[in-house]
Structures are given as structure tokens and as C-alpha cells.
Design a protein around this nucleic acid. Structure first.
Lengths: 350, 350
DNA sequence: CTGAAAGCGCTTACAG
DNA sequence: CTGAAAGCGCTTACAG
């Protein structure tokens, strides 16, 4: 078979080479500007013309080139995920949620981990956004809580969504995870089991969630006439090791708590190790409750009672909001933290 | 302060608006083509001219627009990560490694999880690549093992790197993780502890790693005159639940093994749960060895002896190779699996 | 070694 | 409602 001669005037085989806006315009007998109007859902196209163009688009399998479109729009079709949370499961769940919403939209996800303590952080993010002309960005804790970044984003007029435990910005820029409610659920669970002496292992204080989870805990205890004793609070760092160390400290107290609420599952897993070292049984001697409901919660022994966080759903909501495609309201149980009772919590010892 | 009048002929304030190739050309008194030559490291630019242009680039902070460059090149500066491994830690480590190598290169990472069982898989990936005109892609197991995808990649002439346990392609397209060596290390460790009766929980058979890890195990056992009994092999699915179920089966055998090598940490964690249910102590009654050395390995009790996989380093090597920037040879211990001894393995019971 | 023209595949003004 | 021209910021192919 001899190589096919290119037929510049009437080529209609787009199985190998992708069709362009010019091909569609030629085949539909209109100008490329009119094709552009159809692509961009402009209302000012005659119904009949629109249908003819749409037929050609379908037939040729034409898809607009995001690069060319981006160059002309001065804006790409890339969405950036900017994060500093080191937990792999959080990161992956968030990515999956964003991608859930982005599937079929023509947008793609560019990931950008960062270090909040890095001095050039704000400039780095700014360069990343300006260089790629990002369509918008999603920020997760704790970088989402950094006002310097939010300010820069407004300055360069970049669309953004901040995922955080409380409203830090205008509603259009926020997805709230309401971690206070998670702390509240943990407190109620433990109080209802009969615990009166409860310990708290906090996450690192630079994460807003640490404070929200604690304030929810205190609110829930107060409902039952209980308070969080000062010496029953230990400040960890959301890491396994810090959870273990904090739990050692709390469980070595003469008046040791009968239950510990840890700020996340990693620290709760550390607390489990500390209890084992001290030959305390869980939940017989001490109940332990985590936060996140990541895989680790069901891998440790005993499986952890924990607060489930709908991270993937949160990610989906964030991307929908960024793309201006908010779907119908989500049921609260789908987007708010909720307690998952497993085997690490039980009534206090007699 | 009155708004500055734009000065089309001599604007030199690029603190707000980014400089373009035209600005640099004008300021350096050359054509934009010559600036383009400097950007692209063309040798045919006079030293003096080059220096003048470089000075202007530095002064203006000019960075070429990847979108415009991409449109002209017919290729973007995006690298795609295509994966179907559901383990969050694997995914995140791989991403971090790729980003390690990409930092400062001007490339960005676009993530593309997929489902290998999906019928339109190959077309989806092809559309993803062609639409975004990806510079190249990195594939990880098990999609990296799919020949239909590799074939399509060659057909559309897309640069690609396959990360897999063995060489499935030309060296220029491969990063080998050599999982056989990991199985070998696990076997030697257990044999040296004195185990004679060893069980194996395999990963899902559609992952090449399942077979490589097993063949390494058998090779290591053979070195000590041992073999893997047929009824000591259970086929899991790389999941926690499958590991638990397989271990239940193996540990309920009349001639139960004194040690179990699980194909990954998740299954090893499941095996730990099974041992606990059966009131077998680890490692007193049975030793358990995992594979991956992800965080979970040190969170469970007892902390797992496991095979460490340098996933992040592997990712870094993959991106370097894709960008044609291979650095000096890595020490083998940096890129090969190696055993990490913790507390889940010990001598067999007397 | 250097440049003027044309083009990558789109969109934004501006007309009509 | 539709289109011809100019432009987004680069590079390729061709000259000189």
C-alpha cells in the first residue's frame, strides 16, 4: 500500500492525526470563530449552525487543544493541589476526590507538595501558579491556613479553594471540614461509655485542626459536666512517635485517665504501643480513640474506634466548587466527621 | 500616585507582568529567534551575544512560557504518572521521588490513577497523553506490566518509563525494582534463624511482583536445602483482609509453618491479626515477615520484620531517566530491596 | 552566527 | 448571528 498523499483541501481521516478547529470549520462550512463559539457555549450561534458544527465535531472526534486554548485564554486547564500534610492516605484520598470531580472535565491535576517552614514558600507557590497559568488551586491544611498565601492568591487573581476545619475566608473560597464536630462526637462517645477522666493528645499547634478537635472534645465533655484536666493534655505532633511519647506520659500519671482521645490515628497507634509497654490492656484499662479513620485504624490491635473523615468527598467538593460545578447538596453525613466504633473503646475499669 | 502609563517601547518593569521573549529580544537588541536559541541551548550563538541575552534574562526574571513553548513544540512540559497500585504510601512515595528529580526542571507532574480492568483503559490513557501532549509518562505496577499499553505508547511515540520488578522492555524504558532479591533476602533471614517450614502468602497473580517475590523466596530456601511445600502457599490479593484469611488457613494446618513470608506489609498485618485470633504469639509461635517497609510495618504489634523498598528513590530514578538527566550511578543499597529486621521474626519454637 | 516570515491551535476585540 | 484580522508566546524552516 503506497503512503497516502495528504489532501490538504479535504482530509477527513482523523484517526491518526487529531482534527483541529480549522478542520471542523472547513467541514462545517463556517469560520473557525463560529466553531470557537460552539466550543465555548456562546449563546449567539444559530441553532441550525450549532447542530451542523456539533455533528462535525462528533464525526471527527475533535477535542480542542488545551494548550492552544490556554495560550489564547492566558490561563491553563490545570488545577494545582498544594499541600504540606505528610500523611500519605490523606494526600491520596484528597487527590482521588479532586479527580472524581475533574473526570471528563478536561482539567488535569498537578500536584505540588511544599514545606510551610520554607522561607521562599509564598514565592515558590506564586511562581508555580504564574508559570503554569493555573486555572485554580486547592489548598489543604496546614498551608490552607496560611494568610500570606491567601493574600498572594488574591493579589494575582488566582481562583482558589481552601480546605480547613473552620471558615477562614469567604464561603466561595472555603470547604469546611468542621473538625470541632469530630471532637464532639469522640467526647460524647467516651462520656456515654461512662468515662469521667479523659486525656487528650493534641496535634501540632500550627494545625488549626488540633485546636478544633480539642475544643469539640471539651464542648462534648461539658455536656456531661466533665472537664479536661490541665495535666491530662499532652501536645504531640500528629506523628506515631509523638503519640507514643505523649501516651506514656499520660498513662504514667498517678491519676491516669481511663480514656485517651488522640488527635489522629497515627498518634492513637502510638498510644496503643505505649499502653502495651505499660502492660495496660485496651480497652480494659484504658480506651483509646483516634481521628481520621485511615487504613491504619483497622490494622492495629485492637482496631481503633476513631472519627471518620470524608476526605475523598471533601476533595470532590473542593474541585466542584473550583470549577463552578457544584452539584446538589451533599447529605451532612457524607461531608461531616462521624464516630466509628471499633474495639479500642469500652467502659472504664470498675 | 497616578497610574503609570504603559510604555510600549521601553517597558522594563516586569515585577508585575512577566517578561516575554519579545521583551528580552528588544532589551538585548537581538531578534527573538536568537533569544530562543539561548533558551534552547543552541550552540550556534556567539559567546558575547549569549552573555548579553543571559544578562537580560536574569535582570528581567524572564522564564519562557511553557504553554507557548509547548504549542510550538507540539509537546507539553508535563509528565504523567499512570498507576493502579491502590496503596497510598506507594503512590505518595513514588510521587515524591518523581518530584525530587523534577524540581527546578520546569516540568510538572500530572497524576492519572486508572483501573486496569476497565475496558477503555488503553484508549483513556492514549487520550490523556495526546490531549495534553505529555512530554512523557511513568508507569508503575501493575499497569506498567501491560503490553497493550506499552505498544500504544510506542505507536504514538510517547516517551515512557516502566517501573517493574523485572526487565520487560528495552533498558531505556525500564527501572527495575528486582523484587526477586527482596524475596531472597526474606528467605535467607528466615532460614538463618533456623526455620525449616515456611509459608508464603502471595499477592494477586496479575502483579508480576507476586511471582518475583515468590521465586526469590524459593531460591533463598533452596540455598539452605529447603523447599516451599505446596500446601504452604496461599494466594492473597495484597490486601489486609486477604492476608488475614490466608494466614488463618496456613496457621490452621496440622503441619503449620513456623514462619510466614507475606507478599506485602498489608497482608503481613492481616497475618498478625490471624495469629492473634488463633492465640499464637509472634514471633514465639510463628514469625511473620512483610514486604515494602511502609509506615504500617512499624505501627502494628509487634513491629514487622520486612523488606524495605526504596520507592521514592525509584521514582527519582524514573523521572531522571525520562528527562534524560541520569545522575551518577546509585549505590545498590539505595535502589535495591533490603531486609529490615524488627520484632516479628525470631527463631522457630523448640 | 543571526533574522524575517510563517505557523502551532486557539481566542479577543472589532466589524458588519 | 457570523467572520476576517490580529494576537497569545513561543519554534520551525528557510535565508543570508
Amino acid at each position: 500500500m503506497p503512503p497516502r498523499k495528504p489532501t490538504p483541501e479535504g482530509d477527513t481521516d482523523f484517526s491518526r492525526k487529531r482534527a483541529t478547529i480549522n478542520d471542523v470549520a472547513r467541514l462545517a462550512g463556517v469560520s473557525k470563530k463560529t466553531v470557537s463559539r460552539v466550543i465555548n457555549d456562546s449563546p449567539s450561534v444559530q441553532q441550525e449552525t450549532r447542530e451542523r458544527i456539533e455533528a462535525v465535531i462528533k464525526q471527527t472526534g475533535y477535542v480542542p487543544d488545551p494548550q492552544a486554548r490556554g495560550l489564547a485564554f492566558r490561563r491553563s486547564f490545570l488545577i494545582g493541589l498544594i499541600y504540606d500534610n505528610p500523611n500519605p492516605q490523606y494526600v491520596v484520598n484528597m487527590q482521588l476526590g479532586l479527580l472524581d470531580a475533574m473526570r471528563g472535565s478536561g482539567f488535569e491535576l498537578v500536584v505540588h507538595p511544599c514545606d510551610r517552614a520554607s522561607p521562599p514558600l509564598v514565592d515558590d507557590i506564586r511562581n508555580f501558579i504564574e508559570r503554569q497559568k493555573l486555572y485554580g488551586v486547592v489548598l489543604t491544611p496546614s498551608v490552607s491556613e496560611d494568610e500570606r498565601i491567601a493574600e498572594m492568591l488574591r493579589e494575582i487573581d488566582c481562583a482558589y479553594i481552601r480546605v480547613a476545619s473552620v471558615a477562614l475566608d469567604a464561603p466561595g473560597h472555603m470547604i469546611e471540614t468542621q473538625d470541632r464536630l469530630g471532637g464532639l462526637a469522640a467526647a460524647r462517645h467516651l462520656a456515654e461509655l461512662g468515662h469521667k477522666s479523659i486525656g487528650f493528645i493534641s496535634g501540632v499547634s500550627t494545625f488549626r485542626s488540633s485546636h478544633e478537635r480539642r475544643s469539640g472534645l471539651e464542648e462534648g465533655l461539658a455536656e456531661h459536666g466533665l472537664t479536661l484536666a490541665a495535666d491530662h493534655i499532652a501536645v504531640g505532633a500528629y506523628t506515631f512517635e509523638s503519640g507514643r511519647d505523649c501516651a506514656r506520659q499520660l498513662l504514667s500519671l498517678p491519676n491516669r485517665p481511663t480514656a485517651i482521645f488522640a488527635g489522629n490515628d497515627e498518634m492513637a497507634a502510638g498510644a496503643l504501643h505505649a499502653a502495651r509497654e505499660l502492660r495496660l490492656s485496651v480497652p480494659g484499662d484504658v480506651s483509646i480513640v483516634g481521628y481520621d479513620d485511615f487504613q491504619i485504624a483497622s490494622r492495629v490491635w485492637p482496631p481503633l474506634t476513631t472519627v471518620h473523615t470524608p476526605t475523598r468527598r471533601i476533595g470532590q467538593m473542593a474541585a466542584e466548587k473550583l470549577m463552578g460545578r457544584e452539584t446538589a447538596d451533599t447529605a451532612p453525613e457524607d461531608r461531616l466527621p462521624s464516630i466509628v466504633v471499633r474495639q479500642s473503646s469500652g467502659p472504664p475499669p470498675q
